[in-house]
Structure formats: C-alpha cells, structure tokens
C-alpha cells in the first residue's frame, strides 16, 4: 500500500471528500465574489455556537452508548434553564450564568432517567435515543403551552397562554459570551468569549476523560465485560456519561442562543441532534470512538460547509442548493459511520 492509499484508508473517503469540498469552496469563494473574511467570520461564529453541542456526543460515545441522538433532551434542559432565568427576571450577562445554573438540575435529572432507560436497552441505544429525543420534544410542546410562565416578553402577546415559538434574548443574555473580549478588525469580529468558553469546556471534558471515572468510561465502552471484571459498575458509569452528555447539551444550546439571539421552543430542538452527530463523525469519530480533536475538527468542517455552500453556490449558479447539500452531507456521513461498525471485536 502506498502512503497516499494509507492516508485515504485512515481518513475514509467521505471525510476526505468533505475536506476537499470545503477547501475548494474557500478557493472558489474569491472568484465568486464572496468575501473570505465574512465567510471565515461566519464559520467561526457557527463553530462557537455548535461546538458544545458537538462535544455533548463525546461522553456517551466513550461509554459505549453510541451516538447521542437523544441530544434534544439536553437541549430541553437548557431551554428550561434559559426560560426560567428570564422568568425570574435576571438580565444581562448574569442571566446567562443563572440559566446555566438553573438548567443543571434539569439536565442531571433528565440525564439520570435517560441513562437508566438506556441501561435497560443495551444494544438498541441509538434508535431508542432518537425516539426519546423526539418524544420529549413533543411532550415539551404540550408543557410550553401549559407551564405558568408570565414574563410578557416570552408569552403570546394577544391574550394567548403559553410561550412563544421564538423568544428574543435581547436584554437578557444576548452575546453574553460572544461580546466578551471580542476583537473587531473591519467587519471581521472574533467572538473571543464564546470561543474561549467552548475551548474551556472541551478542555474540561478532556481532563475528565483522564480521571479514574473517565478512564473507566472508556473501558466500559471498549469492553463492558472487562470493565465489570475489573470492578467497574457498568450501569453507573454509563449513567454518568449520559448525564454529562445531557448537561453539555443544555449548556450547548444556551451558548447557541446567546449568539443566535433567540430561544427556539416547540419543534425547534427536534432535529438538532443530527447536525451535531454528523459534525463529530466528519471530525473523525466513529460510533464507538471519539476524541476532543474530532469535536473541534468536525465542528469546524461541518459548519464551514454550512456557511460556505449557500454563499458560494448562490453566486455561482444563482440557486441555493445548500439545504439539499446539508441533508446529503450530514446524513450521508451518519450512514457511512453506521455501516462501518465492526460488530464485536472478533
């Protein structure tokens, strides 16, 4: 095998194609009249917005629970934290930290229940996770209508009850992180605070994975019987990983919102797991192995494509095919990963 083949083998065709695709987009961009600085800026912002949601995949992949298609559950915890923080009247950047604080107990409780469920369905986690995510989003649709929120910026204006579908976080935690130490060069804005926060959480997870519990987690994912024989409580370790993933999902959505500017309720979180799953896979993870590097590379590549395709495509062929490309790239990547799992280590 020559070195080139080796590289292809190791990276995998889809990943290589996606990487080359993105590279070509950046090369074409100036000729198509797209400003690189704006594109790069957008890519960075979206990297920051999605970085933690992608990170939320890592603990569960490590512990052998597979891809966290149940991410919406964590997002719901984040939504509860965000809305409660606004309801309680917190404003400004402070409301962001209160949101995180309030989201945490929900994330822990949801994650614990979700983990307990996944422990009872070992081997069928991913499909069930998907539907747990879906069901919980649908259930919360009912709850958003019924819960007694009364902050006027959040509820339906015209005499209706229940929360709006999109709530602006302006005056609350809009750009709570993004504006922190932000660097402006012309129209290029580097969202220092957000990027630092994303890197910080990535670092913390990296550190966690090197503790005794984190090591046990990796072992449980690698070979549960081995871990059991070494005195590790498999179910407990898996539950911890699910709680951690769920909590990261909650934080992730809050970071997303502070940059995006809106809280999206109801069916908003429905499909949010898929881009995150696709991103970490593009970054080089598989169904049972993932690293922090995979998170960073994946989030950057995937978000890069999402920002670059519409602008470049639009100016080239006057058609916005980005949605279709997004669907094909992200789901194609997931299928690729699912069909490459070796069943058993034999």
């Amino acid at each position: 095998m020559n070195p080139l083949q080796k590289v292809v083998e190791k990276t995998g065709w889809p990943r290589l194609i996606i990487g080359l695709f993105l590279l070509s987009l950046f090369i074409i961009a100036p000729f198509a009249g797209v400003k690189i600085s704006t594109s790069l800026n957008d890519t960075l912002v979206r990297f920051g917005m999605n970085g933690i949601l992608v990170l939320a995949m890592v603990p569960m992949i490590h512990s052998g629970c597979g891809l966290n298609f149940g991410l919406p559950l964590g997002i719901i915890a984040g939504l509860l934290g965000g809305t409660l923080s606004m309801q309680l009247g917190a404003t400004g950047p402070m409301s962001f930290f209160i949101a995180i604080l309030l989201a945490t107990p929900f994330a822990v409780i949801f994650g614990w229940g979700y983990g307990a469920l996944l422990n009872r369905v070992k081997g069928g986690e991913m499909m069930i996770a998907t539907y747990v995510g879906f069901s919980s989003v649908a259930f919360m649709c009912i709850m958003w209508l019924l819960l007694p929120y009364n902050n006027p910026t959040m509820i339906w204006g015209y005499g209706g009850t229940g929360l709006r579908t999109t709530i602006s976080v302006e005056g609350y935690y809009l750009h709570a992180l993004s504006d922190f130490l932000a660097i402006r060069i012309g129209d290029f804005v580097f969202p220092t605070g957000m990027i630092l926060f994303v890197l910080l959480l990535n670092f913390l997870v990296w550190v966690f994975m090197r503790t005794r519990t984190g090591t046990a987690m990796t072992a449980v994912g690698s070979n549960p019987v081995f871990a059991k024989a070494s005195g590790v409580n498999i179910d407990r370790t898996r539950t911890i990983s699910v709680i951690l993933s769920t909590w990261l999902g909650a934080i992730g959505i809050l970071v997303y919102q502070q940059s995006f500017g809106f809280i999206q309720l109801y069916m908003g979180p429905f499909y949010m797991a898929f881009p995150a799953v696709a991103a970490i896979l593009i970054g080089g993870a598989s169904v049972n192995k993932a690293s922090i590097l995979n998170v960073l590379i994946g989030a950057f590549l995937f978000q890069g494509i999402l920002t670059m395709t519409p602008s470049v495509m639009n100016s080239l062929i006057q058609t916005d095919m980005s949605e279709v490309i997004r669907i094909i790239v992200s789901n194609g990547m997931i299928i690729y990963a699912l069909t490459r799992v070796k069943k058993g280590a034999k």
Binding site: M127, I327, I328, I335, L338
Partner: peptide
C-alpha cells in the same frame, strides 16, 4: 446498505430515509 449495518438496521434505515430525502429534493426540486 442495511446488510452492511446488521444489528442496527432500524437506525440506519431511519437515517437513510433522511439521506434519500435530500437526493429526492435534488432530483425533484432541481
């Protein structure tokens, strides 16, 4: 494809439906 993903046919079929939806849009919309 499902033969390549034995034991996880459902989740693969589920994602495949999404994937082909993209291809369908490519064909029908463009």
């Amino acid at each position: 494809i499902l033969n390549m993903a034995k034991g996880r046919e459902m989740v693969t079929g589920f994602i495949l439906a999404f994937f082909m939806n993209g291809v369908y849009q490519l064909v029908v919309l463009y």
